[in-house]
Design a binder for these strands. Structure first.
Length: 267
DNA sequence: AATATTGTTCAGCA
DNA sequence: GTGCTGAACAATAT
């Protein structure tokens, strides 16, 4: 689930717990998530240094260091999270990497499935370029004009387009459904069939849905009653807006929830 | 006990 | 070359 709002909450969590503390050692399951560096290499790189600050682009979290100019990169795949803890008996299950601080605390990078990424990079901008990532949809610079530029000459279905990180970065399966539900757009609508009003509504709902999710700690259980995401997987849930039956289909291979009454097929 | 789930990458096709 | 779609990947919960 770690999409933009989840990663933003993890970023703030790290900011409020693990900055400016000397790193004593690092343990890492090298086979699973470490990329381009060994467990020992990572330990050697970070030991004696400390986390200085954080940045986020899409679903990637970047951590700057106080002594070294390189950055630590974390991607949380589908099931990743961070847990800051002190006592050894509190060590979380499925901890793949542990940053151990001299004050006795640990920051755990936790993940049940192993689709994640932990690496060291020289600079954030170069990494974003190299991965061909589109603009971060939560940043100030992501204006309606920018959004329209991203969609220019696109012909695919709107849902996979919103989820394509090389077009725009941050939206995943769950929030794509939420954005299109709030905007009243059928998920398989072709991008080139959207009119100006529909494009603008989608743009506004990107901003609105992500901000609302962040304001609620990316916890679906606390989202407003008008939201669709808390109802995912609930077999007999009805549409929060019209009380009609919610549909569950596959779009481009991904599980998709929508309301056939509120989100009409075009044409 | 099959099946659904999540994000990214990549094969295959237009 | 380029864009689009869907399969594959790991491991758990149901």
């Amino acid at each position: 689930v770690p999409e933009l709002p989840d990663v933003e909450i993890l970023r703030r969590y790290l900011d409020s717990t693990a900055l400016h503390q000397e790193i004593e050692s690092v343990q890492a399951d090298a086979d699973s998530v470490l990329k381009g560096i060994s467990s020992q290499g990572l330990g050697k790189k970070l030991s004696g240094d400390s986390f200085q600050g954080t940045r986020r682009h899409g679903k990637f979290l970047f951590i700057s260091l106080e002594k070294d100019s390189d950055w630590l990169v974390l991607h949380f795949g589908m099931t990743g999270s961070l847990i800051y803890y002190k006592l050894a008996e509190k060590e979380p299950e499925y901890q793949l990497v542990s940053f151990n601080f001299t004050n006795g605390y640990h920051l755990a990078y936790v993940m049940t499935r192993k689709f994640g990424e932990v690496r060291i990079i020289p600079d954030v901008f170069g990494f974003i370029e190299e991965r061909k990532m589109g603009p971060d949809v939560y940043s100030q610079g992501f204006t309606f004009e920018e959004f329209k530029k991203c969609l220019a000459k696109r012909h695919g279905m709107v849902k996979p387009t919103l989820m394509n990180q090389s077009i725009m970065a941050g939206i995943g399966n769950v929030y794509a459904d939420e954005i299109l539900f709030q905007a009243g757009i059928y998920p398989e609508t072709k991008v080139n069939q959207l009119n100006q009003a529909e494009l603008h509504e989608i743009y506004q709902q990107i901003k609105n849905v992500l901000q609302t999710a962040i304001d609620h700690q990316a916890d679906p259980n606390s989202y407003p009653d008008s939201f669709l995401s808390p109802l995912r997987g609930d077999q007999d849930a009805n549409c929060p807006r019209c009380d009609g039956k919610l549909e569950h289909i596959k779009v481009s291979g991904r599980s998709t929830y929508y309301c056939s009454n509120c989100q009409k097929k075009p044409g």
